[in-house]
């Protein structure tokens, strides 16, 4: 090859490489716009709320005086609602996913069901709230209770749990299924002894992602009539006398973290805004904690499994 040709080629490469640099800069700016905005918001929230984050804030009920107000009823309410949500959504979602993925024949009916499950994940949460108001609160007469709220949020995250579980089940290779079948396993033995245990990391991740969506939901909970001012705790789930477990709390009225925040932000006094910010920090912390647990679980379970 002769000299001028080589120079031409080098010029061409240099011109083309310019676009690499341009895109790298554009991409970095886009990334920073998102990250910095989030960091600024979070920083402002922390700065505003931090002075209020004292032990008393966690063990006080809401109050007319901002300095005495706390989130006791809100975090207890959120915890109990999440418990009901998880207990309802996990068995329903995992069983549905196993049926769809491992048992259901592949025909037009299951195709329609699959498309609908995916679409349900996109239904606005207020619609679930309306459905729950009609079904749980009035038809089934569960009242404006922890049970109603938990079941509503369970419906809301059911599609997320189903989709995540199916993904996790599908990640188990066909060769493992065939190995189990070749030893004489039935379908249920194959699922319960192999596919389900090997995919539990993915399933738990999906469940926790669903729960961290549910923990911040406000609209459907307001729709079914959660109260914004609760100055008492639900019945304790554990009692001193036989049978030691009580389910009275399920029917108790309640409030949750996002509603408590919403209530405070709608107050005119400046001091309540600080309370809202502090509650926001706590809610963010709860979400981060759940996501952290999801990452840790996935890491621990994946470590044993390599395909």
């Amino acid at each position: 090859m002769n000299q001028p040709n080589i120079n031409e080629m080098r010029g061409l490469i240099a011109r083309h490489k310019r676009w690499d640099i341009i895109f790298a800069i554009v991409g970095l700016v886009c990334l920073l716009v998102g990250i910095l905005t989030l960091l600024a918001l979070f920083g402002q929230l922390v700065a505003e709320g931090l002075p209020r984050l004292k032990p008393g804030f966690f063990i006080s009920f809401p109050s007319r005086s901002a300095e005495e107000a706390g989130i006791l009823s809100a975090w207890v309410g959120t915890t109990l609602v999440m418990l009901v949500t998880a207990l309802a959504a996990v068995p329903l979602g995992v069983a549905s996913a196993i049926y769809l993925e491992e048992y259901a024949p592949k025909n037009w009916l299951t195709a329609v069901i699959e498309i609908n499950v995916t679409n349900l994940a996109g239904v606005p949460s207020i619609v679930y709230g309306l459905l729950a108001l009609g079904l749980f609160v009035y038809q089934l007469d569960l009242g404006q209770s922890i049970l109603s709220a938990g079941l509503t949020l369970a419906l809301l995250i059911l599609p997320v749990v189903i989709v995540a579980t199916r993904e996790a089940l599908r990640a188990v290779p066909g060769s493992i299924r065939e190995a189990a079948y070749a030893l004489g396993a039935t379908r249920w033995q194959m699922v319960s002894n192999h596919v389900l245990p090997y995919s539990q990391g993915g399933i738990m991740t999906g469940v926790i992602i669903g729960l961290s969506r549910a923990i911040g939901e406000t609209a459907p909970i307001i729709t079914i009539g959660a109260l914004t001012f609760i100055a008492f705790l639900p019945h304790p789930p554990v009692t001193g006398e036989f049978p030691y477990l009580s389910f009275a709390w399920l029917k108790d009225p309640f409030t949750v973290m996002p509603i408590q925040m919403f209530n405070w932000t709608s107050r005119p006094e400046e001091a309540f805004q600080h309370n809202a910010a502090a509650a926001g920090v706590v809610l963010l912390g709860m979400t981060l904690l759940m996501n952290g647990v999801a990452i840790w679980l996935r890491y621990r379970i994946r470590k044993r499994i390599k395909w």
Binding site: P173, S175, I176, E178, A179, A180, A182, L183, H194, Y198, R304, I305, K306
Partner: peptide, 11 residues
């Protein structure tokens, strides 16, 4: 019983 092409032990 059967032995497959790629080793496929259970985890």
């Amino acid at each position: 019983s059967m032995v497959f092409q790629k080793p496929n032990p259970f985890p």
